[in-house]
Design a protein around this nucleic acid. Sequence first.
DNA 1: ATATGATAGGGAAACGTTTCCATACTTTAT
DNA 2: ATAAAGTATGGAAACGTTTCCCTATCATAT
Lengths: 342, 342
Amino acid sequence: MGNITIKDIARLADVGIATVSRALNNSGTINEETKKKILDIASKYHYIPNSNARNLKVSQTQNIALLVKGISNPFFADMMKEIQRQVNLRQYSLIIQQVDDETNELDVAMELIMSKKICGIIFMGGTYNHPEEELIRLNIPCVLTTITLAEKQNSEFFSSVVIDEVKESKKATDYLLSLGHTKIVFLAKSPFVPNTTGNMRLKGYEEALLQAGLTFDPSLVGDCEYTPSSGYSAMNRLFSKHKDVTGIFAGADTIAIGCAKAALTSGRRIPEDVSIIGFDGIETAEYFNPSLDTISQPGIDMALSSINLLFDLINGTGKNEHITYQAVLLKRGSCSLAPIYK
Amino acid sequence: MGNITIKDIARLADVGIATVSRALNNSGTINEETKKKILDIASKYHYIPNSNARNLKVSQTQNIALLVKGISNPFFADMMKEIQRQVNLRQYSLIIQQVDDETNELDVAMELIMSKKICGIIFMGGTYNHPEEELIRLNIPCVLTTITLAEKQNSEFFSSVVIDEVKESKKATDYLLSLGHTKIVFLAKSPFVPNTTGNMRLKGYEEALLQAGLTFDPSLVGDCEYTPSSGYSAMNRLFSKHKDVTGIFAGADTIAIGCAKAALTSGRRIPEDVSIIGFDGIETAEYFNPSLDTISQPGIDMALSSINLLFDLINGTGKNEHITYQAVLLKRGSCSLAPIYK
DNA sequence: ATATGATAGGGAAACGTTTCCATACTTTAT
DNA sequence: ATAAAGTATGGAAACGTTTCCCTATCATAT
């Protein structure tokens, strides 16, 4: 049963197909009555335009792509959900493509673009230290969010929505410092790989330490994935080397949860013996026992801005923008004065 | 700069476009040398086929859709990630569409199908109590997973990958019962709405109770979303009515986390005063403090089976199948003998 | 020598749209 | 009454593929 096409509608309404097209897209000039008749027939027969034909003709699609690195972080999940919602609201479809550490996201993006599957793209998570020219090559509306930019952020070829990783990370460390902690562990993914998110956050940690007159000890930093299990084993390793750690700054709440477990199973109390602060502000962190202190990113707002900026670019209703959001320090139950002060 | 098309390749290779098409898809008869020449030129000029044109012609796409209800549950997130991975591995794209409680997933599906955007569909989460004919109308390879089927499961029009909700839920309740608990709370989403997942799990809970000779008390069941915060407030309400609750069966780990918080903040110890068991088996449950007992579903396996069944259908390499997985009871640190036995 | 059957490749139609152009009919201004 | 300027519509080309059908070449069998 061949689907119903614009031709069928034309025949049924006894008009030309050009007229049907005009009625459907209300473009050009068309008589109101004719239009109504056509629309009625179309809806009566459940006409749905063939998007392949349409896209072929206009060389544009109604799909936008979301390329996300590190999809497992629940913080991203919430952002994705919001982006999803906004995209659907605008009658577009979302093609989500996860990219792992090995795949080159630009190749993936290029293929999606060239095959005409998408008309806009959001990069989420990870690092984009590609020379700007590469992004220019994409030649498509593009926004980068929740990522660390190696290059200057004032490019005219994409929009971005980020936080100041270094500053926010310093904020977390400063808080621990203010509580009197001096032996503070830092955990993140690839902290020593230049320009990664983990690296940026390490910088903030280091800055805070130095500013407080402490020396930076690389053996206090751990490398782990953004998961509880990975945070757990990394923290265990750290504990075995440094029994006297009293402060932990985890570069993600998921990691913090794993660290907490490690502290607890080693007989340490939180926050009496060891203070823990996370990053991101996922819901579970609040419900953890004890409730986890964290640096909370405005994920939903960032998602919203990203999609708005993207559609501004797609519709030509706005120019490139670069937004930096503020994160906030949430004090809950996992940090307290260093034991020495008690 | 107009993209490079099959015509350009034909011109460059000095052959007809039909020949190029044959070389690209290695279909029909073609000389090996000619083919090599064409392929070389194509790759040299970074030719990428226009999928809109192709899809229009063959009336088929390389996109598969994932319609998920209740996207916020991290248990789904892991499944989605695996589905994503498998789809990409096969050079298809995944269009993820979240459907909320209000939207009719069949309408969404129909639109996606009719507009020729997809060639296969996976329904995930929620309930599908649509009459079979409705699903038949879709007329496209289709698998239902992690959902509760109202109708008999032997349809020839779709595949399914599920667990026996009632049985697994009874397993959880039996466990609590075996520990001597008699006043057990049950929490899930829409437990009293027929055929929902929550309702199925309620049935298992009820069966276990009845079998143990206890009476079913509806005032012990709570209705909440699949989130910690919702579980938290629902449990608080329940505690205020029933101070002597000693067992909690949460229909999701996310809910269990909220319940645990409620128990803890009310001064109850886990598991000494109150035992909690969850459902799903998300990673965080294990790292919670205390480690949460749960009924663990084999999410990754289920995702894998789903996608395999779907591609069997798409490629015509297999017939409809209906798989029921077993979940397993994970005993960790959140359940113990009822206080009365101590 | 001719007939047969592969094998290779080209021309052109078709997929379902949008849009340019042309035409026909109205209205309004002169 | 005629010209000018809308307004409404249809025909047909075009988007970039795939595929059907036809022709040409060549080897093999008669």
